[in-house]
Nucleic acid binder design. Structure first.
Lengths: 135, 135
DNA sequence: GGAAATTGGTTCAACATTAATCCAATTCCA
DNA sequence: TGGAATTGGATTAATGTTGAACCAATTTCC
């Protein structure tokens, strides 16, 4: 059962996440960014370099280049050459970027929260713990 | 905390799934289909009509048209006009399609199983129950 | 019965993504 | 030290995806 079940759990999970993301996609674009760009924004604090973002988010480097370029043009991101390594671009959220990131994150939270709401607080904590253990 | 935490759980989960999928992508394409096509194949038994697949998988109709066309050309899928409703195309896995679907699913299971393996059997069952409750 | 609205699926043109390739800065190591 | 290998990031040409519009079958409802 283990093998089959893993695929089933994966697929359940995948559909759940996809349903959530597509339910908020239009609200997110109303904030002035695409959902993929929101993922990037939300990771910048933890991974302030494009190469790190690409690895962390499992997206190709050229995509990161593109998203960062758009986010910078929109005034959500600032980039400066790293003084330690002149190849690297250190990224930083602007105040506007942080605001829109928090708004987008709140939208996601709200939508996912509707699903999470079917669980008790203890179960939510349990879910989080299980996911963290797997990460 | 509820709001912030929902986004955190969502994001944890998302990264986990993306990491799994990208780790098996090349093995799946070696089977002769794309990962997106595998998702379609794996849903055909439960949702044998393109419109249902689009809704169930949260992908646009034109994409389903394309994937189904490719899967049919590859001999993994057969389609026939539904006698009840001449607009509908009833889809059916071919033996080859079922085989490759099972192989692809097994790859996914194996990769996800490595993550799942960090949980006890009881915890795995718990995770599944939580996800089903949310779906 | 039959016009209007809905639904299943396709097409195509516009748009988004990415593999392959490149350049520059850095690191490795003989 | 200095040439080879590696790494960060950008570019571009090719590929993948999808919104908008479409046609045909079905359903609704007057």
């Amino acid at each position: 059962m283990a093998k089959i079940d893993a695929a089933r759990i994966w697929s359940l999970n995948h559909r759940l996440l996809m349903a959530v993301i597509s339910s908020v996609a239009s609200d997110i674009t109303a904030l002035g960014l695409e959902t993929k760009e929101l993922f990037v924004l939300a990771e910048v604090d933890a991974h302030p370099y494009p190469a790190e973002l690409a690895a962390s988010l499992c997206i190709p480097k050229p995509s990161v280049t593109l998203y960062v370029k758009r986010l910078e043009a929109a005034g959500f991101l600032r980039r400066e050459i790293d003084t330690e390594d002149l190849r690297r671009h250190r990224l930083q959220l602007t105040p506007a970027g942080r605001k829109v990131m928090q708004q987008g994150t709140a939208l996601l939270s709200e939508a996912f929260g509707e699903k999470l709401g079917r669980l008790s607080a203890a179960q939510q904590a349990e879910l989080r713990a299980l996911l963290e253990k797997m990460s």
